[in-house]
């Protein structure tokens, strides 16, 4: 009798403990989700606000002393204004040209260099590699002054050449690609040599296809960097015909539309932001993986 009693006591004890543990877990879960949701709202709200403002009509926006969190009469007029009142289309085309050309040239330069470091043997290779690595430490701010003077003296201001040339090499990407190339087994190389394949052909036919994932990552990261670049384009262009989107939006803010037409400004902001967001949603995994491998902005 006494024994039985003890047993049931024990059981309820276990249940009690289990219950409190479960309750604790639920409380901590709730706190966690609330916390995470708060940050999600802080991140998303500016995006929501920019889209919302961009579809409010000019009159409606300016008559709202207390801004509304929704709109019942969405309009696309602001997008029309963004493309007609200011040369937003031109800015976009410029940025696409700049991005594609810079990324394409950079891919050629870094692939050749990475191939030399990973596959070829020559005197002085190690010294050059160490010098390259040490260049990674140099902040852009230190070299941009002379580059500005160089490009100005070469009369390349307000030209795509001047915009593109300084950013077609990246030591970090050379390093990343070299590491990748080195993982390709030597036997493949010797087999190709026996077949009489030249080094260049081997690079094109074997190494590049094998390293495609890394090349894609590098390409995407470079595209993001180009699309968002602001400082160099600002220094090197003062002719509106060569503005990229970052400078374009700054110009729109200071001189376009008139300062008060915020809905049209937000429409331009949406147009500028959208391409990268779409790119990100498509290549989410690749981008996040690439960035965590060392893609600090700038």
């Amino acid at each position: 009798m006494g024994r039985k009693n003890m047993n049931t006591d024990k059981k309820t004890d276990y249940e009690k403990i289990e219950l409190t543990v479960r309750r604790q877990k639920r409380i901590s879960d709730i706190i966690t989700y609330v916390l995470l949701s708060v940050w999600a709202v802080i991140v998303l709200f500016p995006f929501y606000w920019m889209v919302l403002t961009s579809i409010k009509s000019y009159g409606a926006y300016n008559s709202e002393y207390i801004p509304k969190f929704y709109t019942l009469s969405p309009t696309l007029q602001n997008y029309v204004d963004a493309f007609t009142a200011v040369p937003l289309g031109k800015y976009l085309v410029n940025t696409v040209i700049f991005t594609l050309a810079t990324t394409f040239l950079m891919l050629i330069v870094i692939t050749l260099a990475a191939f030399a470091f990973a596959r070829l043997d020559f005197k002085g290779k190690n010294i050059v590699f160490v010098i390259f690595l040490s260049l990674m430490m140099i902040p852009n701010e230190l070299v941009i002054i002379t580059n500005y003077m160089t490009v100005t003296n070469l009369d390349m201001r307000n030209s795509f050449t001047g915009l593109i040339l300084p950013s077609v090499t990246s030591v970090f990407y050379i390093y990343l690609l070299k590491e990748n190339f080195e993982q390709i087994p030597d036997t493949l190389y010797y087999a190709a040599k026996v077949d009489g394949t030249s080094d260049f052909k081997y690079l094109l036919r074997v190494m590049i296809p094998i390293s495609k994932p890394t090349l894609v990552t590098v390409t995407i990261l470079k595209v993001i960097e180009c699309w968002n670049s602001y400082v160099w384009p600002r220094l090197i262009t003062d002719d509106e015909r060569y503005f990229l989107v970052s400078n374009g939006i700054q110009e729109i803010r200071e001189n376009g539309f008139g300062r008060e037409n915020i809905p049209a400004m937000m429409a331009a902001v949406v147009v500028i932001s959208l391409p990268l967001i779409i790119l990100f949603l498509i290549f989410r995994k690749k981008i996040m993986e690439g960035v965590s491998r060392g893609g600090m902005k700038g």
Partner: peptide
Amino acid sequence: LPYVTNTLAVGMV
């Protein structure tokens, strides 16, 4: 998301 947005553009928001 903020990583892939244009700093200048979102700064306006």
